[in-house]
């Protein structure tokens, strides 16, 4: 069993080059997702931009590099599973699913409109590619653990990825699931904590502190990896199957900023909900264009 912390030296120079190349594509997709989801939120007049933007790089890394999924066969038994435990961040999920071919990109324009398949929280009966209906916090990880147990029983090759918010870890059901995943040694399970340190109302550490967060997971039998959640190459390295302990579930604590990519939203609790006005939207798009050298 390797060190619980992964260091740069654990990755060969070749692997680093390869991750860097792959990361360029992910970076472009994450930037597109950010622009597209902001437009969705502006058009709908509501949404959760803060958490969408903090998790965009994580979700882009998974959908555009890591996950083995096929939009033509969305229920294939051997597919990798992605569970959005922080179910309010539909902006990242819907843009990723559309760009992956699960539905037409034009449908993103229906976000939150009457009868739209793009509900405020994901619904698997409406949309292919959604694994379970999340929304109330504390559900996605326990369901992900169940999927991983099924894979373990069947000795299946698929991997299960669960994205949680950090504030969501205040829900007791998350620790029921974490305890059981450790007990079952679910090596096919990876949790990513979107550690933006802000919950709806205030900082997590002021509300009900999570630290020492890595120690908590380690105590439950997990391998813990900390990464910069906006560094695509680091995320890809962390998600790499070769880095999996296989005998333990793995948590990637991705240090992020709420509202990442838009200067006035960055690290601001007020943008958990919130809709940019026309001027703010123009500025946000200009900043995101500039990031891609446009």
């Amino acid at each position: 069993m390797g060190s619980p912390h992964m260091s740069d030296s654990a990755i060969s120079a070749n692997a680093r080059d390869s991750f860097a190349k792959r990361a360029e594509h992910v970076r472009e997709r994450a930037n597109w997702m950010r622009r597209r989801l902001l437009k969705m939120i502006v058009d709908a007049g509501q949404g959760h931009p803060g958490g969408d933007l903090s998790s965009a790089d994580i979700v882009a890394s998974l959908y555009f590099d890591i996950l083995r999924i096929d939009p033509k066969d969305p229920a294939a038994p051997g597919r990798d599973r992605f569970v959005l435990s922080k179910g309010h961040c539909t902006g990242v999920l819907y843009t990723a699913l559309a760009a992956s071919g699960f539905f037409a990109e034009a449908e993103l324009d229906t976000y939150l409109k009457p009868e739209s398949r793009l509900n405020g929280h994901p619904n698997r009966a409406y949309l292919p590619g959604v694994e379970t209906n999340t929304g109330p916090l504390g559900h996605g990880l326990p369901v992900g653990v169940g999927i991983a147990v099924a894979g373990q029983i069947d000795n299946a090759a698929y991997r299960v990825f669960v994205l949680t918010g950090d504030g969501e870890l205040q829900e007791g059901s998350m620790w029921e699931a974490a305890m059981f995943a450790g007990h079952r040694e679910l090596g096919n399970l990876t949790v990513i904590v979107d550690r933006n340190r802000l919950q709806q109302g205030a900082r997590t550490e002021e509300t009900n502190s999570l630290e020492p967060l890595g120690d908590k997971w380690r105590a439950f039998g997990w391998q813990v990896v900390e990464v910069d959640g906006h560094d695509h190459a680091a995320l890809l390295a962390a998600f790499d199957a070769a880095a999996e302990p296989r005998t333990k579930p793995r948590v990637i604590i991705a240090n992020t900023f709420k509202g990442q990519g838009v200067s006035f939203m960055r690290d601001q609790a007020g943008w958990h909900h919130g809709v940019p006005n026309a001027e703010q939207y123009a500025q946000a798009i200009a900043e995101l264009d500039a990031e891609m050298g446009k």
Partner: peptide, 25 residues
């Protein structure tokens, strides 16, 4: 191998059941 005992944790029990169904059980 087909008896899954989550311990005294009913919320997890039901969610794990839903996950198992997702995994074809």
């Amino acid at each position: 191998t087909r008896l899954i005992n989550v311990g005294i944790a009913e919320q997890n029990m039901v969610s794990v059941g839903a996950g198992l169904a997702n995994g074809g059980k």
